[in-house]
Write a protein that binds this DNA or RNA. Structure first.
Lengths: 209, 209
DNA sequence: TATTTTACTGAATATATATACAGTATAATA
DNA sequence: TATTATACTGTATATATATTCAGTAAAATA
């Protein structure tokens, strides 16, 4: 019963934008102007629906008494849940550690930008994941984790070589790192004789053109 | 003349606290309750003084129309300009206008995220730019402009069809929209007989996986 | 199929609220 | 010393605003 409808979501966004721009919440009439409604009751019913579903609270009797629930309404409306993330250069050899010598720079980015959380950006070298839309110099958001599943795009390290590939585990002791580019071959790792370290998992991508 | 008096400072603080706790600014009467005033005019005059000194702005005629100036504390302290950008669904037909019915939602993003400024995000449909690493459902940051150069990736509209392609202008009256996928063909437009509207230019890309 | 939910228009109204006006008093400034 | 700014009380009022009631219509759900 907590599903927000697309229209209700628009109203919610319009409230957030209004607060961001004016510093205070809109009236029913303001919402009508923004949304193109002709009756204040259109806004009212949407507000009551949003209240019922727990997205906002409405102070009874008060004008502009809307506040956004979840986080600090102020933070929410301004999306202040922003963090700084390091960009790490994917050097041909070497672990993508967070050591300062590997950090290109820090960028600010809302922490919920890709739905799930992540820890750093990695600058991609090479075109081995080209068919997955991952191009040279792209920044991929990486979540540090060892728990990866078949089909995930992972950041893996073999000896000192760091690579981004599809993860497949056909047998207990075998991992296949599969590129998304016909010009490259699968890397098959026998865990009994070789070391494989999963640095993390691909969460999202940013390209500065 | 910008010195705040101790009492005015108390009123300012009380407004900040009120906003933090309720999510919206106080009325004159609310300030009276908090401060112990017996006349709404006590609050009013303090507000006007604070406005005159540049600490707040007061929206005329609006209830609770107080907003605190310079209070984007995060922006202040981190010097990051974050803005809300609309995500527009690239419908197969139709202009990617900013009309609310086309806006999927708003996302917060540092305004200098891609180096140059941009105006909105467009959700990509289809794989015609696959080899440029632009995949289905990617969000591309679009700068509204008509000034595009050969080789730019542009958001173009022919009649009501919106498309993302490489822009090439081999002759005065000819534009070629070139896909980045061998499965698609070039679109050649004779400007003398056909209409072409450049909605904007590709600035960057985000992929939520 | 009947019922509920969503998504509105349109009108009416009690009240919440900004805001002006009339005073009083003290401290700071010119 | 005259003037201005600060810091209030107290009253009044136009209007901004929430909120209820009466409908219509389409889509989703049971």
């Amino acid at each position: 019963m907590k599903d927000i409808t697309p229209q209700q979501n628009k109203v919610l966004d319009c409230i957030k934008v209004y607060i961001k721009e004016t510093g205070f919440p809109p009236t029913r009439s303001d919402i009508c102007k923004e949304m193109g409604f002709k009756s204040p009751n259109s806004a009212e019913t949407h507000l009551r629906a949003l209240e019922k579903k727990g997205f906002i609270s409405i102070a009874s009797g008060a004008s502009r008494g809307i506040s956004i629930i979840g986080e600090d309404s102020y933070k929410e409306s301004n999306n202040i849940e922003t963090d700084n993330y390091p960009i790490i250069g994917l050097v041909a050899a070497g672990s993508p550690t967070l050591a300062s010598e590997n950090i290109e720079k820090q960028v600010s980015c809302p922490s919920n930008f890709f739905g799930s959380s992540f820890d750093y950006f990695l600058r991609v070298k090479g075109l081995s994941m080209k068919d997955a839309g991952i191009m040279e110099d792209d920044l991929i958001a990486v979540k540090k984790t060892h728990e990866v599943r078949d089909g995930d795009i992972v950041i893996a390290r073999i000896d000192d070589e760091v690579t981004v590939k599809y993860f497949k585990k056909p047998a207990q002791d075998t991992v296949i790192l599969e590129p998304a580019n016909d010009d490259f071959s699968n890397i098959e790792i026998d865990l009994k004789s070789e070391d494989l370290f999963i640095e993390g998992k691909y969460i999202g991508l940013i390209r500065e053109s």
